[in-house]
Design a protein around this nucleic acid. Structure first.
Lengths: 250, 250
DNA sequence: TAGGTCGGATTGTCCGACAATCATGGTCGC
DNA sequence: GCGACCATGATTGTCGGACAATCCGACCTA
Protein backbone atom coordinates (compact mmCIF):
# COMPACT_ATOMS: atom_id res chain seq x y z
CA UNK A 1 0.00 0.00 0.00
CA UNK A 2 2.45 2.59 1.19
CA UNK A 3 5.36 1.43 -0.97
CA UNK A 4 5.54 3.03 -4.34
CA UNK A 5 6.56 0.98 -7.32
CA UNK A 6 10.24 0.20 -7.04
CA UNK A 7 12.03 -1.52 -9.84
CA UNK A 8 13.60 -4.26 -7.82
CA UNK A 9 12.65 -5.92 -4.62
CA UNK A 10 15.15 -6.64 -1.94
CA UNK A 11 17.23 -9.66 -2.75
CA UNK A 12 17.47 -12.02 0.19
CA UNK A 13 19.49 -15.17 -0.12
CA UNK A 14 17.91 -17.88 2.00
CA UNK A 15 20.37 -20.06 3.89
CA UNK A 16 20.08 -23.77 3.36
CA UNK A 17 19.25 -24.50 6.98
CA UNK A 18 16.21 -22.27 6.70
CA UNK A 19 15.11 -24.02 3.59
CA UNK A 20 15.38 -27.32 5.39
CA UNK A 21 13.20 -26.00 8.19
CA UNK A 22 10.67 -24.57 5.80
CA UNK A 23 10.50 -27.77 3.82
CA UNK A 24 9.72 -29.79 6.92
CA UNK A 25 7.27 -27.19 8.13
CA UNK A 26 5.43 -27.27 4.84
CA UNK A 27 5.04 -31.01 5.10
CA UNK A 28 3.56 -30.64 8.56
CA UNK A 29 1.23 -27.79 7.72
CA UNK A 30 0.04 -29.49 4.59
CA UNK A 31 -1.01 -32.46 6.66
CA UNK A 32 1.23 -34.93 4.91
CA UNK A 33 3.11 -35.24 8.17
CA UNK A 34 0.76 -35.49 11.12
CA UNK A 35 1.45 -34.87 14.80
CA UNK A 36 3.17 -37.89 16.24
CA UNK A 37 4.60 -39.08 12.96
CA UNK A 38 8.31 -39.70 13.05
CA UNK A 39 10.45 -37.42 10.98
CA UNK A 40 13.30 -39.34 9.42
CA UNK A 41 16.64 -39.74 11.08
CA UNK A 42 19.20 -37.09 10.48
CA UNK A 43 21.04 -39.32 8.04
CA UNK A 44 17.87 -39.76 6.08
CA UNK A 45 17.23 -36.04 5.90
CA UNK A 46 20.81 -35.53 4.82
CA UNK A 47 20.17 -37.88 1.97
CA UNK A 48 16.86 -36.34 0.97
CA UNK A 49 17.92 -32.71 1.12
CA UNK A 50 21.42 -33.28 -0.14
CA UNK A 51 23.02 -31.08 2.46
CA UNK A 52 25.39 -31.71 5.29
CA UNK A 53 24.26 -33.08 8.60
CA UNK A 54 25.22 -29.88 10.40
CA UNK A 55 22.92 -27.99 8.10
CA UNK A 56 20.09 -30.41 8.69
CA UNK A 57 20.59 -30.14 12.41
CA UNK A 58 20.46 -26.36 12.32
CA UNK A 59 17.24 -26.56 10.37
CA UNK A 60 15.74 -28.93 12.88
CA UNK A 61 16.67 -26.68 15.78
CA UNK A 62 14.75 -23.90 14.11
CA UNK A 63 11.59 -25.91 14.35
CA UNK A 64 12.30 -27.49 17.68
CA UNK A 65 11.75 -24.49 19.87
CA UNK A 66 8.35 -23.74 18.39
CA UNK A 67 7.17 -27.24 19.18
CA UNK A 68 6.66 -28.20 15.55
CA UNK A 69 9.05 -31.08 16.01
CA UNK A 70 10.10 -32.63 19.26
CA UNK A 71 12.35 -35.37 20.43
CA UNK A 72 10.62 -38.30 22.03
CA UNK A 73 12.05 -40.47 24.77
CA UNK A 74 14.66 -41.96 22.52
CA UNK A 75 15.65 -38.54 21.22
CA UNK A 76 14.28 -39.41 17.84
CA UNK A 77 12.51 -36.65 16.04
CA UNK A 78 8.76 -36.62 15.68
CA UNK A 79 6.17 -34.13 14.58
CA UNK A 80 4.87 -32.28 17.60
CA UNK A 81 1.63 -30.51 18.25
CA UNK A 82 2.56 -27.20 19.83
CA UNK A 83 0.58 -26.66 22.98
CA UNK A 84 -0.78 -23.37 24.17
CA UNK A 85 1.59 -23.21 27.10
CA UNK A 86 4.54 -23.07 24.85
CA UNK A 87 3.07 -20.43 22.63
CA UNK A 88 1.77 -18.49 25.58
CA UNK A 89 5.17 -18.55 27.20
CA UNK A 90 6.72 -17.06 24.14
CA UNK A 91 3.93 -14.55 23.80
CA UNK A 92 4.09 -13.38 27.36
CA UNK A 93 7.84 -13.01 27.12
CA UNK A 94 7.34 -10.91 24.04
CA UNK A 95 4.86 -8.76 25.92
CA UNK A 96 7.43 -8.28 28.64
CA UNK A 97 10.05 -7.27 26.12
CA UNK A 98 7.60 -4.82 24.63
CA UNK A 99 7.12 -3.41 28.10
CA UNK A 100 3.37 -3.50 28.03
CA UNK A 101 1.80 -1.91 31.07
CA UNK A 102 -0.35 -3.54 33.69
CA UNK A 103 -3.14 -1.32 32.52
CA UNK A 104 -3.10 -2.91 29.10
CA UNK A 105 -2.93 -6.28 30.72
CA UNK A 106 -5.82 -5.53 32.98
CA UNK A 107 -8.02 -4.16 30.22
CA UNK A 108 -7.36 -7.15 28.03
CA UNK A 109 -7.96 -9.57 30.85
CA UNK A 110 -11.24 -7.89 31.64
CA UNK A 111 -12.44 -8.14 28.07
CA UNK A 112 -11.29 -11.69 27.61
CA UNK A 113 -12.68 -12.83 30.94
CA UNK A 114 -16.07 -11.42 30.14
CA UNK A 115 -16.10 -13.21 26.82
CA UNK A 116 -14.90 -16.38 28.39
CA UNK A 117 -17.42 -16.39 31.20
CA UNK A 118 -20.31 -15.94 28.81
CA UNK A 119 -19.38 -19.07 26.96
CA UNK A 120 -18.85 -20.87 30.24
CA UNK A 121 -22.33 -19.92 31.42
CA UNK A 122 -23.81 -21.34 28.27
CA UNK A 123 -21.91 -24.57 28.33
CA UNK A 124 -21.03 -25.58 31.86
CA UNK A 125 -21.75 -29.20 32.71
CA UNK A 126 -22.41 -30.50 36.22
CA UNK A 127 -19.00 -32.16 36.22
CA UNK A 128 -17.27 -28.93 35.43
CA UNK A 129 -19.22 -27.13 38.12
CA UNK A 130 -18.22 -29.82 40.58
CA UNK A 131 -14.59 -29.30 39.60
CA UNK A 132 -14.91 -25.61 40.24
CA UNK A 133 -16.55 -26.28 43.60
CA UNK A 134 -13.68 -28.53 44.54
CA UNK A 135 -11.25 -25.79 43.67
CA UNK A 136 -13.13 -23.35 45.87
CA UNK A 137 -13.07 -25.79 48.73
CA UNK A 138 -9.33 -26.18 48.35
CA UNK A 139 -8.92 -22.45 48.26
CA UNK A 140 -10.80 -22.14 51.53
CA UNK A 141 -8.44 -24.64 53.10
CA UNK A 142 -5.44 -22.66 51.93
CA UNK A 143 -6.78 -19.27 52.85
CA UNK A 144 -3.83 -18.39 55.06
CA UNK A 145 -1.27 -19.02 52.36
CA UNK A 146 -1.40 -16.26 49.72
CA UNK A 147 0.86 -18.13 47.34
CA UNK A 148 -1.39 -21.18 47.44
CA UNK A 149 -4.44 -19.01 47.02
CA UNK A 150 -2.91 -17.39 43.97
CA UNK A 151 -2.11 -20.78 42.48
CA UNK A 152 -5.62 -22.04 43.10
CA UNK A 153 -7.06 -18.85 41.71
CA UNK A 154 -5.07 -19.41 38.57
CA UNK A 155 -6.36 -22.95 38.39
CA UNK A 156 -9.91 -21.76 38.94
CA UNK A 157 -9.75 -19.46 35.97
CA UNK A 158 -8.13 -22.12 33.90
CA UNK A 159 -11.03 -24.46 34.65
CA UNK A 160 -13.46 -21.71 33.86
CA UNK A 161 -11.76 -21.18 30.55
CA UNK A 162 -11.94 -24.82 29.62
CA UNK A 163 -15.63 -24.71 30.40
CA UNK A 164 -16.08 -22.18 27.63
CA UNK A 165 -14.85 -24.77 25.17
CA UNK A 166 -13.28 -22.30 22.82
CA UNK A 167 -9.66 -22.99 22.13
CA UNK A 168 -9.08 -19.77 20.24
CA UNK A 169 -10.15 -17.76 23.24
CA UNK A 170 -8.17 -20.02 25.47
CA UNK A 171 -5.06 -19.35 23.48
CA UNK A 172 -5.79 -15.65 23.43
CA UNK A 173 -6.18 -15.50 27.19
CA UNK A 174 -3.20 -17.48 28.24
CA UNK A 175 -0.44 -14.94 27.80
CA UNK A 176 -2.36 -12.48 29.95
CA UNK A 177 -2.99 -15.15 32.53
CA UNK A 178 0.67 -15.99 32.76
CA UNK A 179 1.56 -12.40 33.39
CA UNK A 180 -1.29 -11.46 35.67
CA UNK A 181 -1.47 -14.33 38.06
CA UNK A 182 2.00 -14.03 39.49
CA UNK A 183 0.87 -10.72 40.93
CA UNK A 184 -2.32 -12.13 42.38
CA UNK A 185 -0.22 -13.20 45.28
CA UNK A 186 0.70 -9.61 46.04
CA UNK A 187 -2.75 -8.28 45.31
CA UNK A 188 -4.44 -10.71 47.67
CA UNK A 189 -2.00 -10.00 50.41
CA UNK A 190 -2.46 -6.25 50.15
CA UNK A 191 -6.20 -6.20 50.56
CA UNK A 192 -8.08 -6.57 53.79
CA UNK A 193 -9.84 -9.92 53.59
CA UNK A 194 -8.35 -10.35 50.13
CA UNK A 195 -8.63 -14.12 50.10
CA UNK A 196 -12.13 -13.91 51.51
CA UNK A 197 -13.32 -11.64 48.75
CA UNK A 198 -11.62 -13.78 46.14
CA UNK A 199 -13.39 -16.87 47.36
CA UNK A 200 -16.71 -15.13 47.46
CA UNK A 201 -16.29 -13.96 43.90
CA UNK A 202 -15.44 -17.47 42.81
CA UNK A 203 -18.49 -18.78 44.59
CA UNK A 204 -20.76 -16.31 42.92
CA UNK A 205 -19.25 -17.07 39.55
CA UNK A 206 -19.96 -20.75 39.96
CA UNK A 207 -23.43 -19.90 41.17
CA UNK A 208 -24.08 -17.92 38.03
CA UNK A 209 -22.95 -20.88 35.96
CA UNK A 210 -25.45 -23.00 37.85
CA UNK A 211 -28.23 -20.54 37.18
CA UNK A 212 -26.98 -19.83 33.67
CA UNK A 213 -27.22 -16.17 34.53
CA UNK A 214 -25.00 -14.25 32.18
CA UNK A 215 -25.55 -10.86 33.75
CA UNK A 216 -24.66 -12.14 37.17
CA UNK A 217 -21.54 -13.77 35.75
CA UNK A 218 -20.49 -10.56 34.08
CA UNK A 219 -21.10 -8.59 37.24
CA UNK A 220 -18.96 -10.83 39.39
CA UNK A 221 -16.24 -11.06 36.81
CA UNK A 222 -16.04 -7.30 36.85
CA UNK A 223 -16.01 -7.19 40.64
CA UNK A 224 -13.41 -9.88 40.85
CA UNK A 225 -11.06 -8.10 38.51
CA UNK A 226 -11.71 -4.74 40.10
CA UNK A 227 -10.72 -6.28 43.40
CA UNK A 228 -7.54 -7.52 41.86
CA UNK A 229 -6.81 -4.05 40.58
CA UNK A 230 -7.51 -2.44 43.92
CA UNK A 231 -5.20 -4.88 45.61
CA UNK A 232 -2.58 -4.15 43.03
CA UNK A 233 -2.79 -0.44 43.67
CA UNK A 234 -3.00 -0.87 47.40
CA UNK A 235 0.25 -2.81 47.27
CA UNK A 236 1.82 0.41 46.08
CA UNK A 237 2.26 -0.64 42.48
CA UNK A 238 1.62 1.51 39.49
CA UNK A 239 -0.76 0.30 36.83
CA UNK A 240 1.24 2.05 34.16
CA UNK A 241 4.50 0.39 34.93
CA UNK A 242 5.67 -2.27 32.54
CA UNK A 243 4.93 -5.82 33.54
CA UNK A 244 8.47 -7.09 33.67
CA UNK A 245 9.30 -5.35 36.90
CA UNK A 246 7.17 -7.55 39.04
CA UNK A 247 7.03 -10.95 37.49
CA UNK A 248 10.40 -12.27 38.44
CA UNK A 249 10.91 -14.83 35.73
CA UNK A 250 14.49 -15.34 36.74
CA UNK B 1 -1.15 -31.11 42.53
CA UNK B 2 -1.73 -34.51 41.05
CA UNK B 3 1.79 -35.90 41.50
CA UNK B 4 2.42 -37.57 44.77
CA UNK B 5 5.77 -37.33 46.48
CA UNK B 6 8.25 -39.45 44.57
CA UNK B 7 11.78 -39.82 45.78
CA UNK B 8 13.46 -38.84 42.58
CA UNK B 9 12.37 -36.76 39.69
CA UNK B 10 12.99 -37.79 36.14
CA UNK B 11 16.57 -37.22 35.19
CA UNK B 12 16.85 -35.35 31.95
CA UNK B 13 20.25 -34.60 30.54
CA UNK B 14 20.12 -31.22 28.85
CA UNK B 15 22.06 -31.02 25.59
CA UNK B 16 24.69 -28.34 25.40
CA UNK B 17 23.02 -26.52 22.53
CA UNK B 18 19.92 -26.06 24.64
CA UNK B 19 21.95 -24.69 27.49
CA UNK B 20 23.52 -22.22 25.12
CA UNK B 21 20.09 -21.09 24.01
CA UNK B 22 18.80 -20.83 27.53
CA UNK B 23 21.82 -18.88 28.67
CA UNK B 24 21.32 -16.31 25.95
CA UNK B 25 17.59 -16.20 26.55
CA UNK B 26 18.14 -15.55 30.24
CA UNK B 27 20.36 -12.62 29.44
CA UNK B 28 17.70 -11.16 27.22
CA UNK B 29 14.80 -11.70 29.59
CA UNK B 30 16.74 -10.34 32.52
CA UNK B 31 17.25 -7.14 30.59
CA UNK B 32 21.02 -7.34 30.59
CA UNK B 33 20.79 -7.73 26.84
CA UNK B 34 18.28 -5.34 25.32
CA UNK B 35 16.56 -5.46 21.96
CA UNK B 36 18.94 -4.25 19.30
CA UNK B 37 22.06 -5.09 21.24
CA UNK B 38 24.52 -7.19 19.31
CA UNK B 39 25.12 -10.67 20.56
CA UNK B 40 28.75 -11.58 20.19
CA UNK B 41 30.12 -13.25 17.13
CA UNK B 42 29.99 -16.99 16.99
CA UNK B 43 33.70 -17.20 17.76
CA UNK B 44 33.14 -15.12 20.86
CA UNK B 45 30.31 -17.31 22.05
CA UNK B 46 32.45 -20.35 21.42
CA UNK B 47 35.07 -18.87 23.69
CA UNK B 48 32.61 -17.85 26.41
CA UNK B 49 30.65 -21.07 26.52
CA UNK B 50 33.59 -23.34 25.85
CA UNK B 51 31.74 -25.44 23.31
CA UNK B 52 32.16 -26.07 19.65
CA UNK B 53 30.95 -23.66 17.05
CA UNK B 54 28.44 -26.17 15.71
CA UNK B 55 26.92 -26.37 19.15
CA UNK B 56 26.73 -22.61 19.45
CA UNK B 57 25.10 -22.39 16.08
CA UNK B 58 22.47 -24.96 16.99
CA UNK B 59 21.71 -23.01 20.13
CA UNK B 60 21.34 -19.81 18.18
CA UNK B 61 18.98 -21.43 15.72
CA UNK B 62 16.75 -22.39 18.62
CA UNK B 63 16.26 -18.74 19.46
CA UNK B 64 16.19 -17.47 15.95
CA UNK B 65 12.80 -18.77 14.97
CA UNK B 66 11.07 -17.20 17.93
CA UNK B 67 12.48 -13.83 17.07
CA UNK B 68 14.52 -13.54 20.25
CA UNK B 69 17.63 -13.09 18.17
CA UNK B 70 17.75 -12.08 14.58
CA UNK B 71 20.37 -11.48 11.96
CA UNK B 72 20.65 -7.91 10.80
CA UNK B 73 21.65 -6.84 7.31
CA UNK B 74 25.16 -8.07 7.71
CA UNK B 75 23.98 -11.41 9.06
CA UNK B 76 25.41 -10.53 12.42
CA UNK B 77 23.36 -11.60 15.38
CA UNK B 78 21.44 -9.12 17.46
CA UNK B 79 18.79 -9.29 20.10
CA UNK B 80 15.43 -9.04 18.45
CA UNK B 81 12.11 -7.88 19.72
CA UNK B 82 9.65 -10.49 18.56
CA UNK B 83 6.79 -8.86 16.78
CA UNK B 84 3.19 -9.94 16.99
CA UNK B 85 3.12 -11.12 13.41
CA UNK B 86 5.67 -13.73 14.11
CA UNK B 87 3.98 -14.96 17.24
CA UNK B 88 0.60 -14.78 15.61
CA UNK B 89 1.83 -16.81 12.71
CA UNK B 90 2.99 -19.53 15.01
CA UNK B 91 -0.18 -19.34 17.03
CA UNK B 92 -2.47 -19.55 14.05
CA UNK B 93 -0.53 -22.50 12.71
CA UNK B 94 -0.94 -24.19 16.03
CA UNK B 95 -4.66 -23.53 15.90
CA UNK B 96 -4.76 -25.12 12.48
CA UNK B 97 -2.91 -28.15 13.73
CA UNK B 98 -5.34 -28.39 16.61
CA UNK B 99 -8.13 -28.30 14.07
CA UNK B 100 -10.12 -25.59 15.74
CA UNK B 101 -13.42 -24.93 14.06
CA UNK B 102 -14.62 -21.79 12.38
CA UNK B 103 -17.24 -21.56 15.06
CA UNK B 104 -14.60 -21.19 17.74
CA UNK B 105 -12.82 -18.70 15.58
CA UNK B 106 -15.94 -16.69 15.01
CA UNK B 107 -16.93 -16.64 18.65
CA UNK B 108 -13.50 -15.51 19.69
CA UNK B 109 -13.35 -12.88 17.01
CA UNK B 110 -16.71 -11.55 18.07
CA UNK B 111 -15.65 -11.25 21.68
CA UNK B 112 -12.30 -9.74 20.88
CA UNK B 113 -13.69 -7.33 18.34
CA UNK B 114 -16.25 -6.03 20.80
CA UNK B 115 -13.55 -5.48 23.37
CA UNK B 116 -11.32 -3.86 20.84
CA UNK B 117 -13.94 -1.51 19.47
CA UNK B 118 -14.83 -0.24 22.91
CA UNK B 119 -11.29 0.85 23.52
CA UNK B 120 -11.15 2.35 20.06
CA UNK B 121 -14.26 4.40 20.72
CA UNK B 122 -12.71 5.78 23.86
CA UNK B 123 -9.39 6.65 22.33
CA UNK B 124 -9.75 7.43 18.65
CA UNK B 125 -7.96 10.57 17.50
CA UNK B 126 -8.95 12.62 14.46
CA UNK B 127 -5.88 11.35 12.62
CA UNK B 128 -6.86 7.76 13.20
CA UNK B 129 -10.38 8.44 12.05
CA UNK B 130 -8.98 10.05 8.94
CA UNK B 131 -6.92 6.95 8.29
CA UNK B 132 -9.99 4.79 8.61
CA UNK B 133 -11.89 7.08 6.26
CA UNK B 134 -9.12 6.76 3.73
CA UNK B 135 -9.32 3.01 3.98
CA UNK B 136 -13.06 3.12 3.36
CA UNK B 137 -12.54 5.33 0.32
CA UNK B 138 -10.01 2.85 -1.05
CA UNK B 139 -12.42 0.02 -0.42
CA UNK B 140 -15.09 1.81 -2.40
CA UNK B 141 -12.70 2.14 -5.30
CA UNK B 142 -11.92 -1.55 -5.21
CA UNK B 143 -15.47 -2.72 -4.76
CA UNK B 144 -15.40 -4.96 -7.81
CA UNK B 145 -12.36 -6.88 -6.67
CA UNK B 146 -13.23 -9.20 -3.77
CA UNK B 147 -9.61 -10.00 -3.04
CA UNK B 148 -8.76 -6.33 -2.75
CA UNK B 149 -11.81 -5.73 -0.60
CA UNK B 150 -10.75 -8.53 1.72
CA UNK B 151 -7.26 -7.09 2.01
CA UNK B 152 -8.59 -3.63 2.74
CA UNK B 153 -11.04 -5.05 5.24
CA UNK B 154 -8.16 -6.72 7.00
CA UNK B 155 -6.30 -3.43 7.02
CA UNK B 156 -9.35 -1.62 8.35
CA UNK B 157 -9.59 -3.89 11.34
CA UNK B 158 -5.90 -3.64 11.91
CA UNK B 159 -6.19 0.13 12.04
CA UNK B 160 -9.15 -0.16 14.36
CA UNK B 161 -7.14 -2.38 16.60
CA UNK B 162 -4.24 0.02 16.78
CA UNK B 163 -6.71 2.72 17.73
CA UNK B 164 -7.54 0.79 20.87
CA UNK B 165 -3.94 1.17 21.96
CA UNK B 166 -3.80 -2.08 23.84
CA UNK B 167 -1.02 -4.32 22.73
CA UNK B 168 -2.14 -7.29 24.77
CA UNK B 169 -5.48 -7.29 23.03
CA UNK B 170 -3.74 -6.74 19.75
CA UNK B 171 -1.63 -9.79 20.26
CA UNK B 172 -4.64 -11.78 21.36
CA UNK B 173 -6.60 -10.86 18.27
CA UNK B 174 -4.01 -11.42 15.66
CA UNK B 175 -4.09 -15.18 15.33
CA UNK B 176 -7.82 -15.05 14.76
CA UNK B 177 -7.40 -12.28 12.24
CA UNK B 178 -4.88 -14.26 10.29
CA UNK B 179 -7.21 -17.19 10.04
CA UNK B 180 -10.44 -15.35 9.47
CA UNK B 181 -9.53 -12.79 6.89
CA UNK B 182 -8.47 -15.17 4.16
CA UNK B 183 -12.04 -16.32 4.07
CA UNK B 184 -13.47 -12.81 3.91
CA UNK B 185 -12.81 -13.00 0.23
CA UNK B 186 -15.17 -15.94 -0.12
CA UNK B 187 -17.70 -14.55 2.29
CA UNK B 188 -17.96 -11.23 0.47
CA UNK B 189 -18.32 -12.91 -2.87
CA UNK B 190 -21.09 -15.18 -1.67
CA UNK B 191 -23.40 -12.47 -0.40
CA UNK B 192 -25.58 -10.26 -2.49
CA UNK B 193 -24.08 -6.77 -2.20
CA UNK B 194 -21.45 -8.20 0.10
CA UNK B 195 -18.92 -5.47 -0.51
CA UNK B 196 -21.61 -2.86 -0.17
CA UNK B 197 -22.68 -4.11 3.23
CA UNK B 198 -19.09 -4.39 4.34
CA UNK B 199 -18.42 -0.79 3.44
CA UNK B 200 -21.54 0.40 5.15
CA UNK B 201 -20.57 -1.40 8.32
CA UNK B 202 -17.14 0.16 8.21
CA UNK B 203 -18.69 3.56 7.72
CA UNK B 204 -20.97 3.14 10.69
CA UNK B 205 -18.13 1.93 12.83
CA UNK B 206 -16.10 5.00 12.05
CA UNK B 207 -19.15 7.12 12.64
CA UNK B 208 -19.54 5.62 16.09
CA UNK B 209 -15.92 6.41 16.83
CA UNK B 210 -16.61 9.98 15.84
CA UNK B 211 -19.61 10.13 18.13
CA UNK B 212 -17.89 8.11 20.80
CA UNK B 213 -20.99 5.97 20.88
CA UNK B 214 -20.10 2.62 22.36
CA UNK B 215 -23.49 1.03 21.88
CA UNK B 216 -23.56 1.92 18.24
CA UNK B 217 -20.08 0.56 17.80
CA UNK B 218 -21.03 -2.70 19.44
CA UNK B 219 -24.14 -2.98 17.34
CA UNK B 220 -22.32 -2.54 14.05
CA UNK B 221 -19.52 -4.81 15.09
CA UNK B 222 -22.10 -7.52 15.70
CA UNK B 223 -23.80 -6.85 12.40
CA UNK B 224 -20.54 -6.82 10.54
CA UNK B 225 -19.48 -10.15 11.93
CA UNK B 226 -22.90 -11.64 11.48
CA UNK B 227 -22.71 -10.65 7.85
CA UNK B 228 -19.41 -12.38 7.54
CA UNK B 229 -20.88 -15.48 9.05
CA UNK B 230 -23.85 -15.44 6.75
CA UNK B 231 -21.58 -15.07 3.77
CA UNK B 232 -19.54 -17.93 5.04
CA UNK B 233 -22.54 -20.16 5.31
CA UNK B 234 -23.97 -18.98 2.04
CA UNK B 235 -20.75 -20.00 0.36
CA UNK B 236 -21.65 -23.52 1.37
CA UNK B 237 -19.06 -23.84 4.11
CA UNK B 238 -19.63 -25.45 7.44
CA UNK B 239 -18.94 -23.48 10.59
CA UNK B 240 -17.90 -26.61 12.39
CA UNK B 241 -15.25 -27.64 9.95
CA UNK B 242 -11.67 -27.13 11.00
CA UNK B 243 -10.00 -24.00 9.76
CA UNK B 244 -7.23 -25.62 7.81
CA UNK B 245 -9.43 -26.70 4.97
CA UNK B 246 -9.95 -23.27 3.60
CA UNK B 247 -6.94 -21.19 4.36
CA UNK B 248 -4.54 -22.39 1.76
CA UNK B 249 -1.30 -21.50 3.41
CA UNK B 250 0.70 -23.18 0.68
C1' DT C 1 34.42 13.93 -2.16
C1' DA C 2 33.21 9.90 -4.89
C1' DG C 3 34.64 5.79 -6.23
C1' DG C 4 37.75 1.64 -6.31
C1' DT C 5 40.78 -1.83 -4.07
C1' DC C 6 42.33 -4.87 -0.61
C1' DG C 7 42.72 -7.54 3.72
C1' DG C 8 40.67 -9.23 7.76
C1' DA C 9 36.60 -10.82 10.03
C1' DT C 10 32.42 -13.46 10.00
C1' DT C 11 29.03 -16.50 8.42
C1' DG C 12 27.25 -20.62 5.88
C1' DT C 13 28.45 -24.99 4.57
C1' DC C 14 30.98 -29.10 4.37
C1' DC C 15 33.85 -33.18 5.95
C1' DG C 16 35.22 -36.55 9.12
C1' DA C 17 35.37 -38.42 13.69
C1' DC C 18 34.06 -40.36 18.29
C1' DA C 19 31.65 -41.27 22.78
C1' DA C 20 27.23 -42.05 24.75
C1' DT C 21 22.96 -43.79 24.30
C1' DC C 22 19.08 -46.35 22.29
C1' DA C 23 16.86 -50.15 19.58
C1' DT C 24 16.89 -54.57 18.22
C1' DG C 25 17.55 -59.09 17.88
C1' DG C 26 19.61 -63.26 19.60
C1' DT C 27 20.89 -66.13 23.60
C1' DC C 28 20.39 -68.16 27.89
C1' DG C 29 18.09 -69.82 31.99
C1' DC C 30 13.81 -71.39 33.92
C1' DG D 1 7.50 -71.15 25.73
C1' DC D 2 8.64 -67.00 28.15
C1' DG D 3 11.17 -63.57 30.32
C1' DA D 4 15.79 -61.70 31.61
C1' DC D 5 20.20 -60.54 29.75
C1' DC D 6 23.63 -59.15 26.55
C1' DA D 7 26.00 -57.93 22.03
C1' DT D 8 25.67 -55.36 18.01
C1' DG D 9 24.39 -51.73 15.06
C1' DA D 10 22.10 -47.32 14.51
C1' DT D 11 21.49 -42.63 16.00
C1' DT D 12 22.39 -38.52 18.32
C1' DG D 13 25.35 -34.97 20.53
C1' DT D 14 29.66 -32.97 20.29
C1' DC D 15 34.00 -31.97 18.51
C1' DG D 16 37.89 -30.30 15.36
C1' DG D 17 39.09 -28.44 11.17
C1' DA D 18 38.37 -26.52 6.59
C1' DC D 19 36.90 -23.34 2.75
C1' DA D 20 34.06 -20.17 -0.20
C1' DA D 21 31.22 -16.18 -0.03
C1' DT D 22 30.30 -12.12 1.86
C1' DC D 23 30.72 -7.99 4.70
C1' DC D 24 33.25 -4.27 6.99
C1' DG D 25 36.56 -0.94 7.24
C1' DA D 26 40.65 1.17 5.98
C1' DC D 27 43.26 2.80 2.54
C1' DC D 28 44.11 4.65 -1.99
C1' DT D 29 43.16 7.28 -6.21
C1' DA D 30 41.13 10.45 -9.39
Amino acid sequence: MSESAEKFGRITPVPAYQMVAEAIEREILSGRLRPGDPIGTEAELVRQFGVNRSTVREGIRLLEQGGMVHRDSSRRLAVGLPHYDRLATRASRALMLHQVSFRELWEATMALSLASIELAVERATPEEIAGLDANIAATEEAMDDPAAVAALDSEFHLLLEKTGRNRVLELAREPSNMLIYPTTNVAVRATEHGAQRLIEAHRMLVESLRRRDIEMARLWTRRHLTDWRKGFEKAGMDLDQPVDLVTGMA
